[in-house]
């Protein structure tokens, strides 16, 4: 159990923890609403962060949005919110509206990008952000200002050659990079035993001579501690670290997938009992940082926020078809 003293020793204040909790609840509320909108035919395609939210919010809480760089992947909705994206912005993306700040409605939701926030625009292929983060880290190392690059991915991405190339390069040059694997044990329908040989993802760090740690992804404070330590090393010039957060995928891969068709019903039922949000809520209550009344207040405010975000996005204009050819090159 995390005591208040433990939490404070991590450098975390009550306000920071509650902000992260609100982010987690915001990501969940957004996800719930987007699934309704998808099933109603209002939006096309959703990838859910369900089960990953606490690990994502904890990781970003340990970093410095505005100073650091973030190469997120398509399941990172809570991470994107923690980096400064708003519910309205993510809803604009879900509706593929012109004012979607990541891509103006060009990419499927979950490809987050914002230069002013240091969030490097993603793409939908798996793993290319990993060696890119090594290059960003090299540039940050050259600048010597103590900033770092955070890069996240699922365990499926660790099968890509780009995973090896990125970790190898970052380790050779002691690049300030935090490699964060959100291991939910399923890459669409392929389970971890058919994906990852050996002891797991974090164990691979040993081959590169960098720290590799496994953390429980439903333990906000454990994830925060691991990422804060990796960040400290990176900023001190000690190079990259690999963190494997064990999480659950409490939703199918995407709205175009139904995991009930390939997963054991008993296992799904058991996992549903281990939602990380009540775990985080309980931790905060134990610390005396969150009351039931405050929790109700947070969730009610979020419902209103999501209502207005949805209304705004529904009413927002589509991209003008005449803009189809814009931004292929710098002069167009």
């Amino acid at each position: 159990m995390t005591t208040t003293a433990d939490a404070l020793a991590l450098g975390l204040s009550r306000d920071q923890a509650l902000a992260a909790y609100t982010t987690v609840c915001r990501a969940r509320a957004l996800d719930d609403r987007r699934f309704l909108l998808n099933r109603a035919g209002a939006i096309a395609f959703i990838i859910s962060p369900r089960g990953h939210e606490v690990a994502q919010a904890a990781a970003i809480a340990a970093l410095q949005p505005g100073r650091d760089r973030f190469c997120l992947y398509y399941r990172d909705f809570a991470a994107a919110l923690a980096c400064g994206f708003t519910s309205a912005e993510l809803m604009l993306s879900a509706f593929a509206r012109a004012d979607d700040p990541s891509s103006g409605g060009r990419q499927t939701p979950g490809n987050f990008g914002s230069r002013r926030r240091g969030v490097i625009i993603g793409s939908s292929t798996v793993g290319p952000q990993i060696p890119k983060a090594a290059g960003i880290g090299l540039g940050l190392k050259w600048k010597g200002e103590g900033a770092l690059c955070y890069v996240s991915f699922g365990e499926g991405a660790t099968s890509q050659g780009d995973f090896h190339e990125g970790l190898n390069f970052a380790a050779i040059h002691s690049c300030p990079v935090v490699f964060f694997c959100e291991n939910n044990h399923w890459a669409i329908s392929v389970p971890q035993p058919l994906q990852v040989a050996g002891a797991g993802v974090a164990a691979r760090a040993a081959a590169y001579g960098i720290p590799g740690v496994v953390v429980a992804g439903d333990d906000f404070f454990a994830v925060y501690r691991a990422v804060a330590e990796a960040a400290r090393r990176a900023r001190a010039g000690d190079g990259p670290s690999l963190i494997e957060a064990q999480v659950l995928r409490l939703q199918s891969h995407s709205t175009d997938d139904d995991q009930r068709s390939y997963r054991d019903p008993g296992e799904l039922a058991a996992e549903a009992e281990h939602d990380p949000i009540p775990v985080f809520q309980h931790q905060l209550e134990e610390l005396g940082w969150l009351s039931e009344a405050e929790d109700r207040r947070i969730r009610a405010a979020l419902e209103e926020e999501i209502d207005s975000a949805t209304a705004l996005a529904e009413a927002a204009p589509d991209p003008d078809p005449s803009t189809l050819s814009r931004h292929v090159y710098a002069d167009g």
């Binding site: 890119k132 290059g135 990125g166």
Partner: peptide, 26 residues
């Protein structure tokens, strides 16, 4: 050796690292 860097024998990361550097203003 930084501005003229020998990389590992891995073309995907050569291009990816170059992109990362470009994103940092190099």
């Amino acid at each position: 050796p930084e501005r003229v860097m020998d990389t590992p024998l891995a073309e995907s990361s050569i291009v990816a690292v170059a992109q990362g550097l470009a994103l940092e203003g190099y």
